[in-house]
Design a binder for these strands. Structure first.
Lengths: 329, 329
DNA sequence: CTGAAAGCGCTAACAA
DNA sequence: TTGTTAGCGCTTTCAG
């Protein structure tokens, strides 16, 4: 079952267990000669330190939990990947947790894992602010794609990004846009809407909101119908999944994209590049977002608790075929 | 830092620590009255069992590690999702590890995690058989998308699946196909090739192999050029990513799919449905694959060691626009 | 620089 | 049914 312990190594090397322990955790505190011998013996025996035992005493688990609101959304893959890579560099383990869009599940998972991890990465958390603060009181927390004044966070620049989106549509002659909103408890959804409204106001175009919709392809049908009903010439969907669903439904109804309706998404998932027409979407460095989040979490201890960092990463509007000049009626 | 322990709960409830322990781990062995009292006190104190301490003694970590050869491949998402869901049902934690297509990284991660998990899910492992057996000697292992005689595994039925693919192409009039192979150290790649060859022989069409290629969109260009050079009328790509890359390159070179060349992929990733033309691909229940793998891992202890289960899940050929009748020359 | 010994939080015999 | 008592494997004072 379990392999050799420091006792076995200590016995075989003719030293005390504490020396073996030091040889691994604080190599500087042991003479080079004994350290080499211990390491050699350990290797021969196939000794591996037991992370649990180590964590029990030290309180350091070398593990961070990443809680994702819906693991089925390709958008998170890049974030997960970036987080995983950064964690590995520091020899940290990434624990992946799926909240399935349920605040209750999310909360339970966090509570269960809390004593076993060094901190939490909360990606697009659906928890109310209140709960977020409670979690942060227990463990270091980094919010991803969500902001809260007293907590560390990493987000893409939605203000600037939404401005780019609206500006792009306006430059194509659209005087009006419809936002197909994301889930009600999604911070991103309300934030995007606010940013779109502001940008629309500044630029001088109209903005309406329809929804909320679950941001999945299958919801695109209903969203598209609602948009058509609202006589939209330009729709901005909460994310690429929804946007793709919208485009499918529009095609089904014989409406052309972008001639009849322009469509914009968010996230720039892989599928946005291969669908027809290609989806114009607001992308960003999601891998960096994951990377940065872990970075912030690992360095959380070495910062003042007040005024936590709130990183904002740049976005980029990726122009593809789904947006075009407005039809001259 | 750390919360209340069983000592705190025991003191507050006026019982021994072992009773508290039992109240949580074996509720049956404690009188209902005391159990209720303990649970109440624990809740009030905000007590949470420490998984590390628990694991240290019991040797049960309630954690399974899933090692994925390349987390960037959307194909794994469904598997991960299925695994995550099944693990959660049993209150197990899923530890996600990315091997980045590197056998060395994969091996190191496994060794590091070995003392801290109950078992490994190895998805499309790039490790040589030899190493796989070593891992299995330490911990329960379930192979995903890979088989090895003495180990438990879950795979899609590539034999039947490849037969469907070849049969489909043959029925469209193709007399010859080209397989764009996956990575050299991928078990899937060689297995698919073998299955394709066999099916081709049975059905009476020719089969050639080109490659290997890294199964990414970016490699599709080179793969497409090689296929064109080989005067292929039908290409079967190692996976959808590669297939999509191939289609992009073909379009760039002015070749039409499927009129000039038919293209088939594997995995049925989301993008296969939205690209143009839609990609004909061999899909399967990847979520079930993930689910089943965890299931097998959790029940590993209750089975005879010899003759481990080797589950084969059905595939389904998803017909889309990328395959068509062969051009009459 | 190294050893002895205590103990992290919990579970598992063994008693009572 | 409940309490007592050893540890699980490791780190960490405190001596030497």
């Amino acid at each position: 079952m379990s392999g050799p312990t420091i006792y076995d190594v200590a016995a075989a090397a003719g030293v005390a267990t504490s020396t073996v322990s030091r040889a691994f955790s604080q190599p500087g505190r042991v003479s080079a000669a004994t350290r080499d011998r211990i390491v050699a013996v350990a290797a021969e025996l196939g000794y591996r330190p037991n992370p649990h035992a180590r964590a029990l005493l030290s309180g350091k688990h070398h593990t961070v939990a990443m809680v994702v609101s819906d693991i089925a959304n390709p958008h998170y893959f890049e974030m997960i990947r970036g987080a995983e890579m950064r964690a590995r560099v520091s020899e940290y383990t990434l624990l992946l947790v799926n909240a399935e869009e349920s605040p209750r599940v999310e909360w339970e998972q966090i509570q269960r894992l809390s004593p076993a991890v060094d901190g939490f990465l909360l990606a697009a958390s659906r928890l109310p602010d209140e709960n977020l603060r409670q979690v942060a009181a227990q463990r270091p927390v980094v919010l991803m794609s969500r902001e809260l004044p007293d907590l560390t966070s990493v987000v893409l620049d939605h203000v600037e990004g939404c401005h780019q989106v609206v500006s792009h549509l306006a430059s194509l002659g659209h005087r009006d846009l419809v936002y197909l909103a994301g889930p009600r408890n999604s911070w991103m959804a309300s934030t995007r809407w606010a940013a779109l409204q502001r940008a629309a106001e500044q630029i001088g175009v109209g903005a309406r909101r329809i929804g909320p919709f679950t941001p999945k392809v299958t919801q695109g049908g209903a969203a598209a119908d609602a948009a058509v009903n609202a006589r939209a010439t330009a729709v901005v969907a909460h994310n690429d999944l929804l946007a793709i669903g919208v485009m499918q439904r529009l095609a089904q109804r014989g409406l052309r994209v972008p001639e009849d309706v322009s469509v914009v998404g968010f996230d720039n998932i892989f599928a946005a590049d291969v669908c027809t027409p290609g989806l114009t979407t607001l992308g960003g460095a999601h891998t960096d977002l994951g990377r940065t989040a872990v970075e912030l979490l690992l360095t959380a201890g070495s910062r003042a608790a007040d005024d936590p960092p709130r990183v904002v990463l740049p976005t980029e509007l990726v122009l593809r075929g789904s947006t075009g000049t407005v039809a001259t009626a």
